[in-house]
Amino acid sequence: MSSDLRLDVTESDGDGRGALTPILHRVVSRHQETADVTILALEPLSGPRLEVRPGQFNMLTAFGVGEVAISVSSAPRDPGPIQHSVRDVGQVTHALCRSRVGDLIGVRGPFGTDWRVSLDDVNSPILSGGDVVVMAGGIGLAPLRGAVHELVARAREGGGRVFVLIGAREPAQIVFNEDLAAWERDGARVLVSVDRGSPQWRGRVGLVTTLLADAGFDASSAAALICGPEIMMRFSARALVDMGVDPHRILVSLERNMQCGLGWCGHCQLGPFILCRDGPVVPYAGVVSHLLSERER
């Protein structure tokens, strides 16, 4: 073939395994976090644990049912196995949520972009020493959990202050309660607001953006990470920009149908993006702020 055609192949790993072939993992623990969210801790049957940057995702296979993209909710600093928080919303996630300790699950990954909180990320728009605001809606906290762990640890080592603002449907659906308490103990400001209170709930009731006014961060120096339903991300990002946060320093995590994670299958397109490759984490500034406002249907 003529020389101008380049055929580069990078396989997912070096042992000849096809890029669509998962690595076998075993469920070593499972925890029912809320009525519909199950946290699965997975260990590879052989070989090293996958190294995942907070914000990236894996493709999880429930054998005989199918494969689905699930964000990783453990942090690189966590000593234990890799964790995924799975919300039971479809066939594959239902099978994953019902898996038992000892069951085998296929894992491919990690894929996609991350929250830019890794130590070696020298040009990170997030780690510049200013305040970091983390806004999560519902299960949107799962892909952010590792980043918050990292940021809270950094804050103790002299990094920027951390503000975690969480929106949930109701008190029973707040995920990672133990982490929220730990982050607060470690100096982060953690605020939670629910859409519907309960008789026991003494906290805030209202949209997650209503927490912004009370949070007390310095908007001019702040960076922000947002993950949740798109409507929540769009209104949250707009509110942050209105407060004076630089849109280039706001990252959001976008989601579309993902079937390969490799940029081949075409399902996760969103405008100029192939989200498994160019996302899920993208800067809000510019094209994303428009995409979030466009009607796709």
Binding site: V89, G138, D195, G206, T209
Partner: peptide, 15 residues
């Protein structure tokens, strides 16, 4: 506006 957004039950199940 905040009330309208909450009416959407954004974090609810969408199946």
């Amino acid at each position: 506006q905040a009330t309208r957004l909450r009416l959407l039950d954004l974090y609810g199940r969408t199946d």
